[in-house]
């Protein structure tokens, strides 16, 4: 088990090992919803919340149930089931208590279920053999990192509307190029902290 302080992992997950910009996980909803800053913020918050909670739940399930019984091969299917169930719960809570957020996230909420960043966070936690607190920090950091990335791209895309993009590059193409540039910029943080 690695001996890195949870806070270092948190910081590293947001900046140096941003799950979206260094592992390119969760790109689909990143590209689909990264157009409006407020939607991006809402989705980012929802993803962060789900990532933290599911990494913690998955950590407990893995270490208390799967590992003692020698059933590590079940991790994929169980993790996905937990994430899907948890998203359902979040959807019900948001619909009940915050109709305006539900209205904004509406069809994107169920998208979180298939957001690979969330499953990725749970799987990295296992691969890197994190302890409980390290896992929690990693989950929080991964979620925050993803939220940061989507908010950045949304901000850029909002400004992009006023610039004249060459026609063949308009739309998704320029978004992909910008994402690449952002990933390059974030690579500048590598070396500040190492978590794997």
């Amino acid at each position: 088990m690695s001996e890195i302080h949870p806070l270092v992992i948190l910081l590293a997950a947001v900046l140096t090992n941003n799950i979206l910009l260094s592992n390119f996980l969760g790109l689909c909803s990143f590209l689909a919803c990264g157009k409006q800053l407020d939607t991006a913020f809402g989705l980012g918050a929802a993803v962060t919340f789900v990532t933290v909670c599911t990494t913690i739940i998955n950590y407990l399930i893995y270490h208390q149930l799967l590992l003692p019984m020698g059933l590590e091969h079940l991790q994929f299917i169980i993790f996905i089931a937990v994430i899907a169930g948890f998203v359902q719960l979040v959807e019900m809570v948001v619909e009940r208590f915050s109709p305006s957020l539900y209205y904004h996230l509406g069809i994107f909420l169920p998208l979180i279920t298939v957001n690979c960043a969330i499953l990725g966070a749970s799987l990295f936690m296992i691969i890197r053999e994190y302890s409980f607190w390290q896992s929690a920090a990693w989950g929080l950091g991964a979620g925050l990192g993803w939220a940061l990335a989507i908010c950045l791209i949304a901000g850029i895309q909002q400004r992009l509307r006023f610039s004249s993009v060459p026609k063949p590059l308009a739309g998704l193409a320029i978004t992909m190029i910008i994402t690449g540039l952002m990933a390059l910029a974030f690579m500048g943080f590598t070396g500040m902290a190492k978590i794997q």
């Binding site: 149930l65 059933l71 091969h73 079940l74 937990v82 169930g85 359902q88 719960l89 019900m92």
Partner: peptide, 25 residues
């Protein structure tokens, strides 16, 4: 074991969600 554990986890999740739906929705 695999089958049992998987079924148990999914059943628990379902029950939990049904309860949540009953109170939340």
């Amino acid at each position: 074991h695999s089958l049992g554990v998987f079924t148990a986890v999914v059943t628990l999740l379902t029950i939990f969600l049904l309860l949540a739906e009953k109170y939340l929705a």
